[in-house]
Design a protein around this nucleic acid. Structure first.
Lengths: 156, 156
DNA sequence: GGTGAAAGCGAGGACCA
DNA sequence: TGGTCCTCGCTTTCACC
């Protein structure tokens, strides 16, 4: 699948990961190419699945979310059905902005946004605790995001 | 700071969060506006800090990262200095793609990418364990990302 | 808040080296 | 692969409602 990215591809990925709204001309400039080959390479990176999309990054605070919580969830059972029902339900809940099925003491790790601690408490009681087959949850709150950018390393 | 977003602003945010490469014309169309007011509104959203940037989303797998790990870190002390040194060091390590200072049993929660389990093991030993003032670390591996999109909810 | 017009530039493709 | 050229449509910024 990774059809060996050369130096130029990597430079494109770095540039686009940093600013997805660069015009093709600016992008071409930044990697010392003309616009056509630049455009072709970007399309290839999209088609081959290296670039999976483009997102505007929004400020949770500006949208009224003062609390970020990490919620570890332990399930009552580990059957296929239990996991499926749980996962499907998760997808419908916008406050849960990320979820991983993980190894270790707990089964899922969720990242949850809430207006404030009080509304998180309510959310935990009314929504999280009532998700299918939940045995136990453990919440940890973010005091501060030390590395907010989430850039996937593109070496060299 | 949130200068009360109206229905149209929210529609713009939803559209851009979904696809940051929409042209201004497409964007205007999707919210039933002409291009000028649409462009003005987007600029305002950027200047007021609601939109903090635009990112190409890359596939970790396509870039050779087969393992995502969540690493909880407990510090030896909780002094200001300790935290600062730790955080500064973190920022230099690209494999750590996210880090939160959190409440609870552990002090920091890191999200780490690695090629495979073996290279994660090495990374944990050579890099993570040698970060300043680390007392204990606990690693949990992602089997699967159930919600990979990380979209901040924009209600209504 | 909104519209419409105008100038210049970029997107996207055909084609060549 | 990369470069040139070309056309259409879009971006961006007006002045104005």
């Amino acid at each position: 699948m990774p059809q060996s990215l050369d130096r130029t591809d990597k430079a494109l990925l770095i540039a686009l990961q940093d600013n997805a709204r660069l015009t093709n001309a600016e992008l071409a400039d930044s990697v010392a190419l003309t616009t056509s080959p630049c455009w072709r390479r970007v399309k290839l990176l999209e088609e081959s699945g290296v670039i999976t999309g483009y997102q505007a990054i929004l400020s949770p605070k500006a949208l009224g979310y003062g609390v970020t919580a990490f919620v570890s969830v332990m399930m009552e059972s580990h059957s296929r059905e239990t996991a499926r029902a749980f996962e499907q339900r998760l997808l419908e809940i916008p406050e849960i902005i990320a979820c991983h099925n993980v190894s270790g003491r707990y089964d899922f790790l969720l990242e949850v946004l809430a207006k404030d601690l009080e509304s998180f408490g309510e959310f935990a009681r009314e929504v999280l605790q009532t998700l299918p087959a939940v045995k136990e949850i453990y919440s940890s709150f973010s005091f501060k995001s030390v590395k907010p950018l989430r850039q996937i390393p593109v070496q060299e």
